[in-house]
Nucleic acid binder design. Structure first.
Lengths: 335, 335
DNA sequence: GGATCGACTAAGAGCGCTCTCACCTGGGGA
DNA sequence: TCCCCAGGTGAGAGCGCTCTTAGTCGATCC
């Protein structure tokens, strides 16, 4: 297919430089050689435009310098509006670039792609795997660990196997948000929770309940799936359940934006009638009307940390298998 | 590093099945063998859990089954809010999955990463490359073509080298939007153009001018960079330049959303005082207040088409080197 | 019944690299 | 002067696969 089918090889560089293959290999890999060899090899490399063949190197070293990021969500959802995944990709990409690794993106929506991913990884195709946003007790981390490949997740696994992970303080963040509402004198504080088969959904609800437990307030809960539409629907449900509510903690900014619209349609003013706090601090949060008070989680940093942890594992280093990043309440106009 | 350092090879499968390596290879690659061989090989493969080594295969076939998607934007912008890139990735990923190829994502912000990408591609690391969202006369497509690797861009190149591309009807879409404003009786129609070193920015401005040329209206132009903030700033500028304007065509939805906010702050009602039309039809467009009338471009389809074209090239097939996808005016509340 | 044909299979030569190990050569100590 | 010790080098053996070239065997044809 390629026009230039035959690229120069180590052999041809060696011939041109008048040294052996091994010496060229040493130069390429930065091992010590005499200055004379060094120079003639470098000249030959430049003249021939030599670039090492990656497959040949991989075959013997068993390193591919490829790192996979697996997003096991239905792809439509991964890439609709939610800037979570782009953010993670961004962070991951920064770290991998620094380590001179390539990023292989695997979107695993269907069963078939699950199988495909397992096969591809078993074929020694990548050196390590990051798994983001697992649902329920996904069998993938266990399967990959069994194959013997380094794995790092975002958030702890819901399954029986424990896998190193990078998480955020969901419970603490949610609790801080609810305390903020309590401190402001709100009395009927509802929540729109995230999906209960994901750590983010579960833990933020836990944080909400924890914070409420100390007070005399009862909990009012609706559940969404992190999308804007589900947030609007959940908000309408809450208004029906308890028309007198005066605050809502929403487990994601996208859902909070949906809730904001539902509140507006219902004629409630934010924050006067109902205070609203989101979670994530996506870019959109600063541009809603009113701007959204929210719990910031360091999305890009999650990606960076995952990559960093994984690179350690790939290099055979030990890591503390749990990293939990802090969350922070960002106060804007909505509460 | 790996726990299971030695995975079964073709050799061991052959030994177990009592046939030669070549026969196993045939079974693995779906070539005809006798039923007896077929069965014993398949049993051996299952028992050993054999998976072909990718590097070894690549070394001889010179195919990696890896396709790169290069996004040569500063990464911060690529992955801030703009759902264009996630959409393209989504489309690309669908097609590649169907063709059993893996996607390598390369974010090329800096000069250094440009070099890194060229090297990696020269090392026969990937079978083909998709380039999205090039700025100005980027040297990358020419460089890759010189290496002899199949390349497909989104939108035509601004440089001297012509590369196969998948574009959209920017001119037609923009013109349709402006005609819609003219038909509604708007008289002072401004535009917020995109960056003038990108096809999307250039062609949408051309479409605006084309549509206006027929009428007696003069053009009123501000330029943004496709971000929300730049849209707001450009809108303020326009209001200063011509306080009497009654319509704006904005070259991206994100900028249009920014413009919407600037108009609100300036006390103009949309669409009563000022009609507004965006471009892209991102998910957000349906949720602004009022919902945004916009020109839809099929973002996911761009990704799919790029992938499909590239796969043809990789397989040595000829393609028509230009695909232009239609755009469509979506009328909502803002105009 | 022997030659011919077709359909499979076995063996072997690489693909381009790394890595081990033996070898060389020059410098310093005895 | 001789020997020993390094650091540096070269030859060769793979890594696991594909693909070409022979070769085998059973079935068909005259």
């Amino acid at each position: 297919m390629n026009v230039q089918h035959r690229r120069p090889t180590l052999e041809s560089v060696a011939a041109r430089a008048g040294v052996s293959r091994a010496t060229v290999s040493r130069v390429v890999n930065g091992l010590p050689v005499t200055t004379a060899s060094q120079e003639s090899v470098e000249r030959a490399i430049a003249e021939l435009g030599y670039v090492p063949n990656h497959a040949a190197r991989t075959l013997v070293t068993r390193r591919t310098d490829l790192i996979a990021l697996v997003l096991p969500e239905p792809t439509t959802r991964v890439f609709s509006d939610d800037p979570f995944f782009p953010g993670v990709i961004h962070g991951v990409s920064q770290e991998l670039e620094a380590a001179d690794k390539q990023l292989v993106l695997m979107l695993a929506g269907s069963e078939a792609s699950h199988t495909r991913i397992e096969r591809s990884i078993a074929a020694h195709h990548v050196d390590g795997v990051m798994l983001a946003s697992l649902h329920g007790a996904d069998p993938l981390p266990a399967a990959l660990t069994r194959i013997g490949i380094p794995v790092v997740c975002n958030e702890r696994s819901l399954g029986p196997t424990s896998v190193p992970y990078v998480g955020v303080d969901n419970v603490g963040g949610a609790a801080a948000a609810v305390r903020h509402l309590l401190d402001a004198g709100r009395t009927r504080i509802a929540t729109i929770a995230g999906p209960q088969d994901m750590i983010g959904g579960i833990d933020r609800l836990t944080g909400y309940r924890d914070a409420l437990r100390g007070s005399s307030r009862r909990s009012i809960v609706a559940v969404g799936d992190f999308t804007m539409d589900s947030g609007a629907a959940a908000m309408r449900q809450l208004l029906e359940d308890d028309p007198a509510l005066d605050a809502v903690f929403v487990a994601s900014d996208l859902m909070a934006d949906g809730a904001l619209q539902a509140l507006r349609q219902a004629g409630r003013r934010v924050p006067d009638d109902v205070a609203l706090i989101g979670f994530d601090d996506i870019a959109l949060a600063a541009y809603t009307d009113p701007p959204l008070t929210t719990v910031r989680q360091p999305i890009v940093e999650i990606g960076r940390q995952m990559a960093r942890q994984l690179l350690c594992l790939v290099n055979g280093a030990e890591i503390e298998s749990t990293v939990v990043l802090p969350t922070e309440l960002v106060i804007r106009g909505s509460a």
